[in-house]
């Protein structure tokens, strides 16, 4: 059985200007110790999806569907189990490390707090564990870092501290929401490699949320591509790249410049703007921008189908799939 199983998740926000359909019909699963990437642009619903799991949405959000973690119903946790679930089972790392760090507290204090609360460790044991954790995320001279404040660290170091905090209670699942977007390429690579290494070493499942297909390409087992609050395509990572089916995934891949393109290569942009989530989803959200659009795309929601060729578990929601190079 999968560690995390999300089925038909829908999140609707009620706002002054009517409902906003942020996430609709989202299903995916995460195996124990596996890494999956959720890829999408802003407004794709990727962050809302995981925030609904982490109970981080405002009260204006209405959540439908189910999420099962190790047999537990995530959306209806017993109060006694909640603390353990959010503090120990699952941990999350955010894009901006400063939102997770208290600027007026020393790193050591922030690291040991959670352990002393959840595991009732003594001050000495917690400090020892904190040094161990900083070592784990490859921060040099950890004992010295414990006495520093967040502003004394670089962006990359802060994100490492945040990751160390997330690892404090040995979570079985780590969710990282755009963990490297604000960082330089060199630091980004190091942090991603670190997350990948930690996942293997600690046998921890990893959900990596990003807007950049390149980030998840070499570091995940499965990828879910989202657009307009819906899953467009989901597949084992290699298969997604080898047998891209959905026009949106194609468009996403070909619109981004890469290092192997000669200079001046004309890009193929996706025309138009991202969808308006205030409109109830009744047709394919990508239809207005899709170059392979058909009449059927505009009249009904595409059903999720399974690709026959290629590896198993390759699904897509499109009535006019484009197999191979487009």
């Amino acid at each position: 059985m999968a560690l995390l199983e999300v089925r038909d998740l829908a999140v609707t926000f009620s706002t002054a200007n009517g409902p906003v359909y942020a996430v609709s019909d989202v299903s995916f699963s995460v195996e124990r110790g596996a890494a999956i990437g959720i890829v999408g642009e802003s407004g794709s619903g990727k962050s809302v999806t995981v925030k609904s799991l982490m109970n981080l949405l405002p009260s204006s959000a209405k959540i439908d569907g189910t999420a099962t973690y190790d047999g537990l119903d995530v959306f209806n946790l017993e109060p006694s189990r909640r603390k353990h679930f959010y503090g120990v089972d699952v941990a999350m790392v955010f894009q901006n490390p400063m939102t997770s760090l208290n600027p007026v507290k020393r790193i050591g204090e922030q690291l040991t707090e959670g352990m002393r609360f959840h595991r009732k460790l003594s001050r000495g044991d917690a400090t020892a564990r904190a040094v161990e954790l900083l070592d784990l995320v490859r921060i040099p001279d950890p004992a010295k870092r414990l006495r520093q404040y967040p502003h004394e660290l670089s962006g990359g170091m802060r994100q490492r501290v945040v990751i160390a905090m997330a690892l404090a209670n040995d979570p079985a699942l780590l969710i990282a929401d755009e963990p490297t977007t604000a960082l330089d390429v060199t630091v980004q690579r190091d942090i991603l490699d670190l997350l990948d290494g930690l996942r293997r070493d600690l046998d921890m499942a990893l959900v990596l949320i990003t807007h950049d297909l390149g980030v998840v390409r070499d570091r995940t087992d499965d990828i879910v591509v989202m657009y307009g609050g819906r899953v467009m395509e989901g597949a084992p990572t290699e298969d997604l790249f080898a047998n891209t089916v959905h026009p949106y995934t194609h468009a996403l891949r070909s619109s981004i410049p890469n290092m192997s393109m000669p200079r001046g290569t004309r890009l193929s942009p996706i025309p138009g703007s991202p969808p308006d989530l205030a409109i109830a989803p009744t047709s394919c959200p990508f239809a207005p921008r899709c170059t392979h659009v058909t009449d059927a795309c505009r009249t009904a929601l595409p059903a999720t189908k399974t690709l026959d060729s290629g590896a198993s578990g390759h699904t897509y929601a499109c009535v006019n799939p484009q197999l191979g190079e487009v």
């Binding site: 642009e41 619109s255 410049p257 001046g264 004309r266 890009l267 193929s268 942009p269 996706i270 991202p274």
Partner: peptide
């Protein structure tokens, strides 16, 4: 900018 919009702007600048 969103990845899908980046290429629009790059082509426009070109």
């Amino acid at each position: 900018l969103d990845v899908s919009v980046q290429a629009q702007i790059l082509n426009l600048l070109d």
